[in-house]
Design a protein around this nucleic acid. Structure first.
Length: 342
DNA sequence: TAGGTCTTGCGTCACTCACT
DNA sequence: AGTGAGTGACGCAAGACCTA
């Protein structure tokens, strides 16, 4: 589901559903007794405390007493809050008076901050409180988002291969093949391939579709099952056509010949690495992979954070509408009360 | 218009948490 | 215990905006 859909859906629900729910909440205010007549309406305004909003006690004609808190409240410092963050903010506010405590224990602060729940978790908790707030799905995202996925959580590589051109190929659990060029700084260095074994043009061969930008040179690399992925002339031609039409280029998986083609390098498994140079290369490769995955994770995290903030802003809008309605309701009740006393 | 400031996004590191 | 995901913090770069 795209963000636009989420927001529009929220907007649709915002005005209608939430105030209804909170009206019910107001009706259930405990601790107040009915009047003997049951038809009297009384309004009492009291100040709760310094900085606290005024509390208005409204006795409805039905005999119900309603505590209405002032809807005009002090502005919040930030909409991004969690219980932990609130604790931090309270602490920081309390510390404002004493400059000597301005320098906080960074270790403790880091500890508090690091325990902050994920945005997904917070958002899902919010959504359980307010149905108008959409949940973030645990696993899948829709493919029609148009966002380059990179190596996502659902496509974690299970195998890593190194080509003779210095590129890395990862085979994910879902069967997708991803080509990564470490020398490329941007997202275009990553290509995602989707294997389709059914309908292969010849036995033992499979078409591999490349979702990324096609490289200039030919691609040769191995995949599990002793199969060799070759970008042959035909598929190269297909690639050129695809490049012209915007379609995806094609690769083929073939069973390799008894002798390895020139220029094809098979990455050795970590268990067979002996020389320090090989170990260093392996370490470098692992680091590159880790950095790449962390890069993607950071992107995803920022995306979720933005979505989370958007949802909070939407919720603020909903609550503002709700406050407005409550103000109007309160004014109406006040009018009824004053007209009865006159 | 040049220089300063602000905003935004990115990559990386460090760390925690959950899972196996 | 090891591993991967998630995320805050930090620094950097590029663009937007402001001001003398």
């Amino acid at each position: 589901m795209t963000m636009e859909m989420v927001e529009s859906q929220q907007d649709d629900n915002a005005v209608d559903s939430v105030p209804e729910r909170d009206a019910g909440h107001l009706e259930n205010q405990p601790g107040r007794s009915r009047t003997s007549t049951g038809s009297e309406v009384s309004v009492a305004v009291s100040r709760a405390g310094r900085g606290s909003p005024a509390v208005t006690l409204v006795q409805l004609p039905s005999g119900q007493n309603v505590h209405v808190q002032g809807v005009i409240q002090a502005t919040q410092p930030s909409v991004i809050q969690s219980p932990h963050m609130q604790a931090v903010q309270v602490a920081s506010i309390a510390d404002e008076s004493t400059e000597s405590k301005e320098i906080t224990d960074s270790q403790k602060r880091r500890e508090i901050l690091s325990r902050r729940p994920s945005y997904r978790k917070i958002l899902n908790e919010l959504s359980s409180d307010a149905p108008a707030v959409p949940k973030i799905e645990e696993e899948e995202k829709s493919d029609d988002e148009g966002v380059p996925s990179g190596i996502s959580a659902t496509a974690m590589p299970t195998s890593l291969y190194h080509t003779n051109t210095g590129q890395y190929i990862t085979i994910t659990r879902s069967g997708a093949i991803q080509i990564f060029n470490p020398s490329s700084d941007d997202v275009h260095g990553l290509q995602t391939l989707t294997m389709t074994n059914s309908g292969a043009p010849q036995p033992g061969a499979a078409i591999v579709q490349c979702a990324g930008q096609s490289p200039d040179g030919t691609q040769q690399f191995f995949v599990p099952g002793n199969q060799l992925v070759v970008q042959d002339r035909d598929s190269l031609l297909l690639n050129r056509v695809a490049a012209a039409t915007g379609d995806m280029p094609a690769y083929q998986i073939r069973t390799p010949a008894t002798t390895l083609p020139q220029g094809v390098v098979m990455a050795a498994s970590p268990g067979t690495l002996h020389s320090p140079q090989q170990l260093a290369e392996e370490a470098t490769r692992k680091r590159e992979l880790r950095l790449m995955k962390n890069r993607e994770a950071a992107k995803e995290c920022r995306r979720r954070k933005k979505e989370y903030i958007k949802c909070l802003e939407s919720r603020v809008a909903v609550l503002e509408v709700q406050n407005k309605k409550l103000i109007e309701e309160l004014e109406t009740l006040k009018d009824i009360c004053s007209s009865k006393t006159d």
